[in-house]
Nucleic acid binder design. Structure first.
Lengths: 191, 191
DNA sequence: ACGAGTTGCAACACTGATGACGCAAGTTGA
DNA sequence: TCAACTTGCGTCATCAGTGTTGCAACTCGT
């Protein structure tokens, strides 16, 4: 590939990024938004969007692929397999929150048709489950709660925290993990 | 009104109920589903749906209104203002779960334009906040957690539990409240 | 059997979104 | 300046969903 081609491709990829980010902004507010609205938010013509993405479906798939990659990197960076469970839980949470708040819509559609994306997604899923298992074995998680339920609660709290636009990711992560492990009750009045 | 009219109206209202329930089933799976799909699920012709509901928007509004009323009744039935906080929390949770699992989509769109529906919704919201305040004053809820966050966590857990199709509402409610108050951690390894 | 009311069916017009073109104008590196 | 490439704009055809209407058929209670 020539330098010319490389420079031009770089331009093109910048446009792609711009469109993906605009699509996320628009679709997270209104999942039924038109390509026109997405193009407008990206500051390009609608035809340009269609030139980059063959169809609306292709655009959403690309968003899912991009978000999934970011997601995987965020989890990876926390070394969830080698760090002590509790520390890993904090790290993963903080990193994921950073990504999730920016790619909320895309990640909700992460059940992509693309097998490669599905693989990465399944990989992250399994890493998460391993972490929870390690946490339980280490005595951080109660043994009498359904691991599946614990994971669902964790995801729900992630989802909830990601909606909060203000606040440092680290502070949000700290509150999230605190709530996940201790709940919001005092312990008084319980059997 | 004659007996004839009453009988016929009763028939008509049964059709309306059928359509509302079908719409909930279809739209909860795919919010962008067409009127055609809703009609098919209800076992009626598309034109019949349009005869009962002037527009798609009117249908969704009617769903929201119906669900909101069910919702308000579920909360009301738990006497959240007079029962001890912890008991009320269990009762409200169990009752709401029963409704929510059947009217998931409709309740997510409960921010209706209809002022009457909005009033009922705000009423429930306030009842919930009063309950949480009472719980905090009674020492059931920790004083060092943001009440707004506690409420969000509660809603998130409700939402999550409502997805689970199997299991008794009472058992789900018990697990939910347990998780809300105690979390899923052992307390070991925390500062 | 009669009549009021409701339904299904077929047909219609309307709208908005989608996706594909060609062309002129702009940018960027060579 | 040239060549490759991209973009914006206008235009087009197509399609799906929406909402309306007329008519025949059906089910009630009387």
């Amino acid at each position: 590939m020539s330098d010319t081609t490389r420079a031009l491709r770089s331009d093109a990829e910048r446009t792609v990024r711009t469109i993906l980010e605009a699509a996320e902004r628009v679709l997270s507010r209104n999942p039924a938004a038109s390509m026109e609205q997405i193009a407008e938010a990206a500051g390009v013509a609608r035809t340009t969007v269609h030139r980059r993405f063959a169809s609306r479906e292709a655009l959403v798939d690309a968003m899912a692929a991009w978000a999934t990659r970011q997601f995987a990197e965020a989890v990876e960076a926390a070394n969830p397999d080698t760090t002590p469970p509790l520390v890993a839980l904090y790290q993963v949470t903080a990193n994921v929150l950073r990504v999730k708040s920016d790619w909320n819509f895309a990640m909700s559609r992460a059940l992509s048709a693309d097998p490669e994306v599905a693989r990465v997604h399944a990989d992250v899923e399994e890493r998460c489950e391993r972490l929870f298992r390690r946490a339980q074995e280490a005595g951080v998680l109660r043994g009498d709660v359904d691991p599946l339920w614990a994971k669902r609660v964790y995801y729900a709290l992630i989802h909830e925290s990601a909606q909060v636009r203000d606040g440092e990711p680290d502070a949000l992560a700290a509150r999230l993990v605190d709530t996940l492990l201790r709940g919001v009750g005092t312990g008084r009045g319980l059997a």
